[in-house]
């Protein structure tokens, strides 16, 4: 379970600090998914980075499975906007990077995950040789390689064309159901939030506060995009954002 309590985050030195997040509270049970949506620059990524341990809260607490977050941890994986691949490492090296950094490689490797994502044939290629969709899949492989219990995604499909974006959203959904990790997705895309979030937190302009919580209990099927519930959730999110 992830618990975020009274989270406040300031940037800058104490005298001239700028508040980025101002009192955010939420709980996410194990295996559930949550989407954070809000205007650009509102502080969504800041919240995500603090859950990943990259940023420490100015006030408030974050705990994962009862343990306070004090830095990056092995059971939490982060997928960045452009997949976060290192151009000088091959697909194999990028996918195994987290395992290598934690000292688990080569005892463990990402071979099975690369197979699952259909990337085994390109494992010796460099990111520059891959399409954007493939790059995102390598980023996912790296995140899955450590079998995390929490998956954090920071606008992971930004700048992809619509069809590729939908294909990878389907892949996220399938992986979330099979690997059973808790998922927190940051996005500015209403459709993406409605497709992948069981609960959606709509944030205010900076400093980020929770404007509204939208439940989305019927999500979870690959055909959810065709349903009336999906259309209704999208409409509801649009209304809240425009308020």
């Amino acid at each position: 379970m992830i618990e975020v309590r009274s989270l406040k985050i300031d940037y800058g030195s104490p005298g001239s600090a700028v508040r980025a997040v101002d009192g955010v509270d939420f709980t996410l049970d194990r295996g559930r998914s949550l989407a954070l949506i809000g205007p650009s620059g509102c502080g969504k990524t800041t919240i995500l980075f603090s859950i990943s341990g990259l940023l420490l809260p100015t006030e408030g607490t974050i705990t994962i499975s009862g343990t306070p977050v004090t830095g990056p941890r092995r059971d939490v994986a982060l997928i960045l906007q452009n997949a976060g691949l290192l151009p000088w490492k091959t697909v194999w090296q990028n996918a195994n990077l987290s395992l290598l950094l934690s000292g688990d490689y080569p005892k463990q490797d990402a071979g099975a995950v690369l197979d699952e994502l259909g990337l085994s044939e390109v494992k010796d290629r460099y990111p520059a040789e891959l399409s954007e969709g493939m790059k995102r899949r390598v980023g996912i492989a790296r995140a899955l390689s450590t079998a995390p219990s929490v998956m954090l995604m920071d606008e992971p499909l930004a700048s992809l064309d619509t069809l590729t974006r939908e294909r990878i959203q389907d892949l996220f959904l399938t992986l979330w159901r099979t690997h059973k990790f808790s998922l927190i997705l940051v996005t500015h895309d209403i459709e993406e939030a409605a497709f992948l979030g069981q609960e959606i937190l709509v944030l205010t302009e900076r400093p980020a506060r929770i404007k509204e919580r939208v439940e989305n209990p019927e999500m979870g099927g690959l055909d959810y995009r065709e349903s009336a519930a999906y259309t209704q959730t999208v409409r509801k999110l649009r209304e809240v954002l425009e308020k």
């Binding site: 976060g84 950094l101 934690s102």
Partner: peptide
């Protein structure tokens, strides 16, 4: 983003 990418994986 390259630095964040490895820091988030716990790099020293």
């Amino acid at each position: 983003e390259h630095i964040i990418s490895v820091r988030s994986a716990g790099a020293s």
